[in-house]
Amino acid sequence: MGDNRNDDLDKGIGIKARRAIAYIVLAVISFFCLIWFYILLINATRSNGELTRGFTPIPSTYLFINWQNLLAGTLPIINGLVNSLIVSICSAALSTYFSCMTAYAIHAYDFKFRKAIFTFILAVMMIPSQVTALGFLQLVDGMGLTNSFIPLIIPSIAAPATFYYLKQYMASNLPLSIIEAARIDGSGEFRTFNTIMLPMMKPAMAVQAIFTFVSSWNNYFTPALILQDDKKKTLPILIAQLRSADFLKFDMGQVYVMIAFSIFPVVIVYLLLSKHIVQGVAVGSVKG
């Protein structure tokens, strides 16, 4: 804190005191954000016996054994991981590609219903998927797609929030003159989109891919209604199953490993890319 650049002399002490308070409050808040993950990590390394004896802040050596017990147990956790990965990766890929295409349609062309469609997409952006879940479920039943990943992946093609973010990014980063130039060079519209436009949208698409991946990875409500076959279940459903099973019969070490297993992949990806993600939040939701 040793910088005294040009603080007003009479306010210098006030600033220092405020700065100290700010750091203390931030430290306390950070503590309350992180402590849960610390306890989780510690407890994942301890055996059921150690866990029942009480909490200690020092890790033990049972992490690998807990993990092996979990694998040997009844929860199809590796299946769950693979299922979650398939659904999340496909959703993220389809959502960003097609949202980009939708944004491009609105951004680069001038057609009759352009304004109406744009307004419509923005208007429905806030409608939560839960309110149409009933009809969605009947539709999925009628199509014979129960226990299929298709109803969890395909709908992500129409993602109003992703569209809106990409549209905003396009407005400030994609001059129409580039498209004109491509036309003069004889590039077809679809080719222009795929080979000239998409590469320019990479940074924004990466941010949205991460967001879509994470929300799909964490999604519990819809998958729980659609996936009933044990082999098809995603990780959040398995967690819920863990909760509804008779809790005390469980080896708590396994429970903690299972939770850690669902949380930490996302945490690691986030820590690697946090700079872009935090910026993405600010840009995406509010203008100016």
């Binding site: 808040i29 950070s30 954000c33 849960w36 964490n218 949380i263 935090v278």
Partner: peptide
């Protein structure tokens, strides 16, 4: 740090709190 909990699987976070 403060944005981190937003990305955590809510069901796993709840299971953690329950435990």
């Amino acid at each position: 740090v403060i944005y981190l909990p937003n990305l955590i699987m809510a069901s796993a976070f709840s299971m953690l709190f329950f435990a």
